[in-house]
Structures are given as structure tokens and as C-alpha cells.
């Protein structure tokens, strides 16, 4: 354990792997393995997401984070390992998790409201009820008045908010976020980070997020996992106990940022 981590063991603690696997989990991944031909992307990868927890994965680009999400959602079949959903073995959690990525993936021929209501429409949910829910979320996320705008008429930040509403329209407990804010400028990103916190605090979701923005990770995470690349392994876990919303001027976070940066650079 290195010096910085020791100094601030009050605000964050380094945990060994078996510690985090204790307790209840909503999602648990054990010995997940995936190879593409000769290239090993994941080997015996373990991960636990606790209910209503905010877990952030950070690692060098191309380390296999997105493959992990593809395996979790069942888009790509896994070679080996087990995925447990609420203590039940499953092939994937594609029917239990909402997924949001860097691209908003809004359909240009639908209005923002129609886009947000797609999960309900495809799931043949009650139209009136889901529209009430969607309009409420539009209000909540600062999109009120833009329901009938088409995506190409609004800003990137608003598009991503709309994608967030769509994500919330899935009635799922787990939300997978794959660099959801990385295409946005700094100011927009900052305001949307607080909305991501709402997912956890107000909507009771469990969140697993990929990012390569260290500050974003530190501001949002309950558990921060630093990854190595090829094959992807867990380099270190940090539990961040300080209350949210956080600010980057917190000296602990500043130290931790340095520390995570060092860890990531060692891997280059």
C-alpha cells in the first residue's frame, strides 16, 4: 500500500478482492473470460455491484471495458465465467439493465418525447401511463417544453438528457453507463453529472459506469475500480465514503486523483 493511500485511509480505503464480494449484490460477475481469436480481453474477471451502489470502472482506453458491457448485456457471448443477478445465475442481464452510451442514439425521425417513450412503446406498456411518466421525467431533467422537438433541433446536452430519460423509462434496477458524457463539453458535462447522481439518489438505481475521466469518477463513485489492459484486470479498488455531491477541491479527492493517475500511467 503506498503512502498517499495510507494518509487518507479515513476517507477512502483500499479493499482486497474478497472483502467486496461480501454482502448483498445486485450484480455479480465471477471469473468472466472472453477471447477474440488469440487476443484475451478478459480473464477471470470479478466484479460486484451492490444495490443502489455507484460503481465506476476506469482504465486505459481499449482495455476491454466496452467488451465487459457487451458481455453483460448479452450482445457478445461470454467464453467462461458466471453472471449472477440477484443471487440467480443468468446468461446475461440484457433484460435487467438499461444501457446508455456516449452516443445519445436518438432517432432523428421521432420527437424527443417519442424517443424517450420507445422502451415503453416496444414493451407495449400502457401508453397513457408511460407518457405521464415520460413527461414527468422531462420536467425533472429540465427538458420541459421540448417534448415535441426533434433531436436535431436541440443541443448535445439536451439530447443526452433525453437519452437519460429513455434510460429511466426502462423499468430496470441496473443502469450501465458507457462513457455517457464524454462527447459533451466541460460545462454541459458538469450539469449532467449531477443528473447521473439523481439516478442513484432519487430513482434508486444501481449504477455501473465506465469512464476515462478521473474527476468524473471521483465525483460520482461509491466504489472506484482501476483497471489494467490486455487482459483487463482489477488493478485496485477504492471505496469512497464521502457524501455527494462532491467538489473537486476536496483535498482527499485531489490526492486520490494523483494516485489514480499514477496507477493508470504505470500501465502505459
Amino acid at each position: 500500500m503506498d503512502a498517499i493511500a495510507k494518509n487518507h485511509s479515513l476517507s477512502f480505503s483500499l479493499l482486497s478482492e474478497h472483502n467486496t464480494n461480501k454482502g448483498i449484490s445486485i450484480l455479480r460477475v465471477v471469473n468472466l473470460t472472453k477471447r477474440f481469436d488469440d487476443l484475451t480481453i478478459l480473464e477471470n474477471f470479478n466484479l460486484t455491484v451492490s444495490p443502489n451502489g455507484f460503481t465506476v470502472l476506469i482504465g486505459p482506453s481499449g482495455c476491454g471495458k466496452s467488451t465487459l458491457f457487451d458481455l453483460l448485456t448479452g450482445v457478445v457471448p461470454k467464453d467462461n465465467g458466471a453472471i449472477t443477478w440477484n443471487q440467480h445465475r443468468v446468461d446475461h442481464v440484457g433484460r435487467n439493465a438499461a444501457y446508455m452510451q456516449q452516443k445519445d442514439l436518438l432517432l432523428p425521425w421521432f420527437s424527443l418525447l417519442e424517443n424517450a417513450m420507445l422502451p415503453a412503446r416496444i414493451g407495449k406498456a400502457d401508453r397513457v401511463k408511460s407518457e405521464i411518466k415520460a413527461r414527468g421525467l422531462f420536467e425533472r431533467l429540465g427538458l420541459a417544453g421540448f417534448e415535441n422537438y426533434r433531436p436535431d433541433k436541440v443541443s448535445g446536452g439536451m439530447r443526452q438528457r433525453c437519452a437519460l430519460v429513455r434510460t429511466l423509462m426502462f423499468e430496470y434496477d441496473l443502469v450501465l453507463l458507457d462513457e455517457p458524457l464524454s462527447a459533451l463539453d466541460a460545462i454541459t458535462r458538469y450539469s449532467l453529472q449531477s443528473l447521473l447522481l439523481l439516478l442513484q439518489s432519487d430513482f434508486g438505481k444501481s449504477i455501473l459506469m465506465i469512464t476515462h475521466d478521473i474527476e468524473e469518477a471521483l465525483l460520482l463513485a461509491d466504489e472506484l475500480i482501476v483497471l489494467t489492459s490486455a487482459p483487463m484486470r482489477i488493478r485496485r479498488r477504492f471505496t469512497l465514503a464521502s457524501p455527494k455531491p462532491r467538489r473537486m477541491n476536496d483535498p482527499f479527492l485531489i490526492d486520490l486523483k494523483e494516485h489514480v493517475l499514477e496507477l493508470l500511467q504505470e500501465d502505459l
Binding site: 450482445v75 440484457g94 439493465a97 444501457y99 432517432l107 425521425w109 420507445l118 422502451p119 416496444i122 426502462f170
Partner: peptide
């Protein structure tokens, strides 16, 4: 592909994907 994955995750069948995504 990302859009098709999104529709798959929403549980869309072929005709739903065709009507709402592929045709437009």
C-alpha cells in the same frame, strides 16, 4: 450496430425494429 443493439436491449422483435428503426 449500436442502434440495433439498443433495440435488442429494448426487447424489440423484427417487425418493431423494421417499423421504428430500419424502415425510416
Amino acid at each position: 450496430r449500436e442502434y440495433r443493439v439498443l433495440f435488442k436491449l429494448m426487447g424489440a422483435d423484427f417487425w418493431q425494429s423494421l417499423r421504428l428503426l430500419l424502415w425510416p
